[in-house]
């Protein structure tokens, strides 16, 4: 295990940011810390980096007890949400910073900087100032800067949070491909479950200062440990006392069978390829999503009488909290 966090507590005044958190983060993988804002995930990342100190507990990085080490001795790369570019230095000098601090020979620095700028596709901007770059370019520069010192672990705090949707998607794919090339142990914080599911090998769900669940994207999506994880990772609807994903529900017309609940269609919304049908079963409104063909073959509209049932062999079903 690359990063071992044991019994870490952190408080800001009366606010409990981390409540006895223990996590093991595997070597060489891309791990996401996922959770709602204010849940403590950024604090945990900053404690790993040494930018915050834990009140109690230990942090071990690659077998080295780093709990008391200052950030500059931990050999971690850190990427900030708002880039933290050194505004008075050119792109190349930004990337070279860590190497200059380590007093590497000039030739080596130049070579390594060029290599990294190629990796992040910024070679032609080497002499520009960060203010002359777009947000996505600045974040790639920040990533190159963090990678330059060959960190043991790379930590990214909401790295795409300040970017617009399109650039965000591109950078996300790019980060995944970059990680497949570089293989450095990477931890990134996000509140976007889609981002975590798409990019990460392993996800740690954190809420209200506690770890809710740790697992692969498939495990978390298919076998959520509790209703919080289930609700946070994707759309959820309630049928009777069960929480289900709307796409795991089937609609049928005609004969009523024992497992189905009958209801009336109250609303039909189309979102691109997906049709969202709301069915009122009397005491609750159930949302069912279908694809276009399924919907057309049912031949229903608003006001139709239908039967709703959970599709067979659906893994993700959680009893609703009372």
């Amino acid at each position: 295990m690359s990063i071992e966090i044991k019994n870490v507590n952190k408080r800001f005044g009366d606010f409990v940011a981390l409540d006895n958190v223990s996590v093991s983060i595997p070597s060489g993988q891309l791990t996401a810390l996922l959770g709602p804002s204010g849940g403590g995930k950024s604090t945990l990342l900053r404690i790993i980096a040494g930018l915050e100190s834990a009140e109690s507990g230990t942090v071990e990085i690659e077998g080295l007890n780093a709990t008391k080490l200052p950030p500059q001795k931990r050999n971690v790369g850190f990427v900030f949400q708002h880039y933290a570019a050194f505004k008075h230095l050119s792109v190349a000098r930004n990337v070279a910073f860590g190497l200059e601090i380590r007093k590497r020979p000039k030739d080596e620095i130049r070579e390594r900087v060029n290599e990294l700028l190629d990796l992040v596709h910024l070679r032609q901007f080497a002499d520009r100032l960060p203010s002359q770059l777009s947000g996505g370019q600045r974040q790639r520069m920040a990533l190159a800067r963090a990678l330059a010192v060959q960190p043991t672990v790379l930590l990214l705090d909401e790295p795409f949070g300040a970017l617009d949707a399109k650039v965000r998607k591109e950078l996300r794919d790019w980060l995944r491909r970059l990680h497949d090339e570089v293989h450095v142990t990477t931890v990134f914080v996000t509140h976007d479950q889609e981002e975590a599911l798409e990019v990460a090998d392993e996800i740690v769900v954190i809420n209200e200062g506690r770890v809710e669940q740790i697992g692969s994207p498939d495990e978390l999506y298919d076998q959520p440990a509790n209703d919080f994880v289930m609700k946070f990772l994707g759309p959820v609807t309630q049928l009777g006392d069960r929480l289900v994903r709307p796409h795991d529900l089937h609609l049928q017309v005609g004969e009523r069978d024992a497992e189905a609940v009958s209801g009336r269609v109250t609303r039909v919304t189309r979102i691109g390829f997906e049709i969202r049908v709301e069915v009122s079963t009397g005491d609750q409104v159930v949302t069912v999503t279908l694809n276009r063909n399924e919907f057309l073959s049912l031949g229903i509209g608003t006001g139709a009488e239908v039967q709703v049932r959970v599709a067979p062999d659906v893994p993700a079903v959680v009893r609703a909290a009372a």
């Binding site: 040494g50 200052p70 500059q72 850190f78 708002h82 010192v149």
Partner: peptide, 15 residues
Amino acid sequence: EQEQAARSLGANAVQ
């Protein structure tokens, strides 16, 4: 943030 970035890149307080 820039100072924190510098620290994480290995710079001590004076640097």
